[in-house]
Amino acid sequence: MNTTVQCTTVDGAHAHTWTLVYPDEADYLRGRLSVLSPAGIALFGARRGQTVVCRPPRGVPIRYVIREILLQPENRRRACPVSQIQISRLKTDGGPICVVRTRYFFARG
Results as ranks from 00 to 15, higher is better:
58 R>Y: 08
37 S>Q: 14
59 G>Q: 00
6 Q>F: 08
79 A>R: 07
20 L>A: 12
12 G>F: 01
12 G>H: 13
15 A>E: 14
2 N>I: 01
81 P>V: 14
67 R>A: 12
83 S>R: 06
72 Q>K: 13
101 R>C: 01
91 K>T: 06
79 A>E: 12
70 L>T: 07
29 L>N: 13
98 C>R: 07
60 V>G: 03
103 R>Q: 09
24 D>C: 08
84 Q>L: 14
70 L>G: 04
34 S>E: 07
91 K>S: 10
42 A>L: 03
95 G>V: 09
65 V>Y: 05
19 T>L: 05
65 V>R: 10
55 R>S: 03
33 L>S: 05
1 M>W: 06
96 P>V: 13
97 I>R: 15
102 T>G: 01
30 R>D: 14
38 P>I: 15
92 T>H: 03
55 R>M: 11
84 Q>C: 06
39 A>S: 03
19 T>N: 02
3 T>N: 01
90 L>E: 11
29 L>Q: 15
87 I>M: 08
46 A>M: 02
69 I>R: 03
27 D>R: 05
96 P>A: 08
13 A>M: 11
59 G>K: 00
10 V>D: 02
38 P>G: 09
3 T>R: 07
31 G>H: 06
62 I>N: 05
59 G>N: 04
52 V>K: 00
73 P>L: 01
18 W>T: 09
1 M>E: 07
99 V>L: 07
86 Q>R: 11
43 L>F: 00
73 P>G: 01
33 L>A: 10
89 R>F: 11
17 T>K: 05
65 V>P: 04
50 Q>M: 06
14 H>M: 08
32 R>Q: 11
97 I>H: 11
13 A>W: 08
13 A>P: 06
85 I>F: 15
86 Q>E: 09
42 A>R: 00
67 R>I: 03
100 V>R: 05
20 L>G: 05
21 V>Q: 15
97 I>M: 10
43 L>M: 06
39 A>R: 00
31 G>T: 15
108 R>V: 10
84 Q>K: 04
49 G>R: 08
